[in-house]
Design a protein around this nucleic acid. Structure first.
Lengths: 135, 135
DNA sequence: GTTGAGGTTGAACTATACTTTAAGGTGTAG
DNA sequence: CTACACCTTAAAGTATAGTTCAACCTCAAC
């Protein structure tokens, strides 16, 4: 069997059929053809494409970005330089998000360490800090 | 002047009037009273409450969580223990997100270091890795 | 031939934090 | 008295990644 209905593809990839149709609307993956009655038929390449999507998602790329990556991958005239630049930008984006989260974590940890963990909220240093006049 | 219309409160806090109305719908802040014609009137406490919201947001709390924090702050019968637990849970949440991002970053950095940055996409190791058969 | 699993579509819903729009009332300065 | 800035509401739109729903069609088995 070299062709799969959407349900088989879904079962084997662990995705929901609705997700596959959603990816199609987003331009990420299309069935190779349709049956006379309109059923989607996918070939083995679909698994590869979905694996690409899954891996790229795990690396932090959005579906829009993945669509761009797939377009680059599909077009032999494109340069690897574009992909590298894309990757670098994503690394910087992630580094920036990590810095934001580290800052939040430090702020929370400082508050948490001052809280005795008992008594009324009126004496809670965490709430006091959020309410404080000074900056 | 001890009372402020929504526009004045917005200007002084840097928030949009729509955002203030949105916060009201979300149960975060309400005007002290209304004029006969329905205009919202806020008192000085509103600035404090909005500062609380801003700071809590900067620490990574969602508006729903901030609503809970404000409710805890408003209720003298609540224990500081709840706030401390809340803060701990948020720290763990943030640590988990940082770990996810670190993992992504390592994956991207590994790919990026293998890419020469020139040549056709067909020879791009980044795309190759995303397409690769093996796990 | 009917039942049940699985397929089709478009639209609406989820979560988060707003922003925008539409249609209309209010307050004040000239 | 008429601009014009500012206020009101409810509803819809934005971005992201789907999920759920309604109404209907198809395919294989019994």
């Amino acid at each position: 069997m070299t062709e799969f209905t959407i349900g088989r593809l879904a079962k084997q990839t662990g995705l929901a059929t609705e997700t596959l149709r959603y990816y199609e609307r987003r331009g990420l993956i299309a069935p190779h053809q349709r049956t006379a009655s309109g059923y989607r038929l996918y070939r083995r390449e679909a698994f590869q494409r979905l694996r690409f999507i899954r891996r790229a998602q795990a690396l932090g790329f959005s579906l829009d970005e993945i669509a761009e990556l797939l377009a680059l991958s599909d077009d032999p005239d494109q340069s690897a330089a574009v992909v590298k630049q894309f990757t670098r930008a994503k690394i910087q984006d992630i580094e920036s998000r990590i810095r934001d989260l580290e800052r939040m974590k430090r702020g929370l940890a400082a508050l948490e360490s001052h809280c005795p963990g008992h008594g009324p909220t009126s004496e809670c240093p965490i709430l006091a800090a959020l309410n404080a006049e000074d900056e």
